[in-house]
Design a binder for these strands. Structure first.
Lengths: 216, 216
DNA sequence: CCCGTTAGGATACGACTGTATCCATTCGGG
DNA sequence: CCCGAATGGATACAGTCGTATCCTAACGGG
């Protein structure tokens, strides 16, 4: 038992979790079985059993990894977002699947989400990401509104909830290949352009409240 | 073999299909088995086999029934919709689950939708309702815009796609009990109010194009 | 009357599931 | 050196799954 034991252990678990998510993303959650995961990871059934006591534990691990990936994607995009509008475009753009990897993850996420609707054990393991995003964006939008970058007759919480639901619905369309990523992005930008537009009747208000709106 | 044979046959199939949808709506699609359907319908396994050759046929029947229910709900609400805005509120309000029955149907629909993402056989059996609604609403919105009831700088197709995606995303939130029906309706109305609002800069255009806008 | 079709009960079959058990190997600290 | 823990191969077990088969009844037209 060498020093890097715990590391190897976690690495093994990570490989198995990734195999699980690959299956869930391509063939669905109902195709996920212990033996399938073993085959996908190129190991024996016993190894899967060894590193995960339960199938339940395995599924939870997959859900946790999926949440971590989502958070990572959002943070990467938000990192280089200058304005509040850029932050919104980044977050919403991170929700809608863009490349093949995010499509697979989105598939798996949808499968988990659907399963959690009828399986309280999965629901308890956490789909908390949407709520966190809602709070985060609401704070940002409220600040932008107070800075005069958004029309005062907009309701930040309602706008954010609507935009997140929009991104969610667009994701469904992208996954079912009813829409592609570009079309979805256009729809999102269409709405962001209106939300952050101050053209006619809001210029007066903008001029009166424009204090620290440059950095936002 | 009496005259009402075919009728009895169809009635039996209908009962079994409803039993299937009850299970799918409460315990999920993965809980749907021939034996479970038999138990739910209060018949023997053989009867389920007798009226449906395959499990596949059974699932398709459930999907068809689900689509029919959705269409029925939309038509009922659209029936007494006076203005174009009422039509939009009716259609979008028909998508978001309101009572317990529509919640169950929406659950089952989500389960089917998710399954269809990885099962081409189910996808072929038809999730065509969204596309039909998109075309329908786009025609209505374009007409309303030409009548001057909607600002000319709105893009009807984008607006409709966005609203349907919004309703879809809100449905997810309602099903996961993150939001209730009332909150979802408020968000929809919030957006419809903006879409059909002509207050400041559009009144000029409205006055110039207002020919047959009264009946719409 | 009787015979073929319709309807359904009872049971079986093979595949697959999650989980458990038995066993061999490896390897590092005492 | 050696012994116990870590690791994993092979196999078994009890369920559940969709599907198939066998066998009764019932019943209406010839």
């Amino acid at each position: 038992m060498g020093v890097p034991r715990q590391v190897d252990h976690d690495e093994r678990r990570r490989q198995l979790t990734e195999a699980l998510l690959r299956i869930a993303g391509t063939r669905g959650l109902q195709a996920v079985s212990m033996r399938e995961i073993a085959a996908e990871a190129g190991v024996s059934l016993r190894v899967v059993q060894y590193y995960f006591t339960n199938k339940q534990a395995l599924l939870e691990s997959g859900l946790i990894e999926l949440g971590a990936r989502g958070r990572r994607r959002v943070q990467q995009r938000v990192a280089d977002a200058a304005s509040t509008r850029d932050v919104f475009a980044a977050v919403l753009g991170a929700i809608v699947p863009s490349d093949e990897q995010s499509r697979l993850d989105s598939m798996a996420w949808t499968a988990y989400y659907t399963a959690a609707l009828t399986d309280p054990a999965l629901a308890a393991a956490g789909l908390t990401l949407p709520n966190a995003l809602e709070d985060f964006l609401t704070v940002r939008l409220t600040a932008a509104q107070q800075a005069g970058d958004v029309s005062p007759d907009r309701d930040p919480r309602t706008e954010v909830a609507g935009l997140l639901a929009l991104a969610n619905g667009l994701t469904s369309g992208v996954l079912s290949r009813q829409r592609d990523h570009e079309a979805a992005t256009k729809i999102i930008d269409y709405h962001l352009a209106r939300l952050f537009d101050l053209t006619p009747r809001n210029l007066a208000h903008k001029a009166q409240a424009g204090t620290d709106s440059a950095a936002d």
